[in-house]
Amino acid sequence: MKLDFIIIDDSKLDCFIAEKIIRNTGKGEDIRSFTMAKEALEHISKNPVAEGRKTIVIVDIQMPLMNGFEFVEAFEKLPEEVRKDYVIYMLSSSINENDLNRVQSYASIKQFLNKPLTSNMLSTLLEML
């Protein structure tokens, strides 16, 4: 099954790396990067996922203007029929315990991932889907 991906990270290099790694797996269909979480949210609310498809969202925590947690909070306010086709992973360089605990408190975050994203990490994660 082919998957769509949304990458949200204020670092262009991190977006580039993630895109590249996803492409290398051969499983990514539509891959989009956003350096602003707000724009990603807009995209999600305006573009419904096609029937029977899933979109993987990989979101950074610390970003200017809207951070990863704020993004997830806004996402959780979207209607259920919009949300149901998304799987959210949080990807961060943070080693702060508060951040890690906070990740657990959001129902819609599937898992926390440590930066940098590697192809091994991504393959394991896709197998577990």
Binding site: L13, F16, I21, S93, I95, K115, P116
Partner: peptide, 24 residues
């Protein structure tokens, strides 16, 4: 202390990721 992880580790991990990718 909080921001150090992001502002110092962040760029380093980006570079690490890029190196990893560039190898292949």
């Amino acid at each position: 202390a909080y921001s150090v992880t992001h502002d110092m580790r962040g760029p380093l991990l980006s570079i690490l990721g890029a190196i990893d990718l560039a190898k292949e």
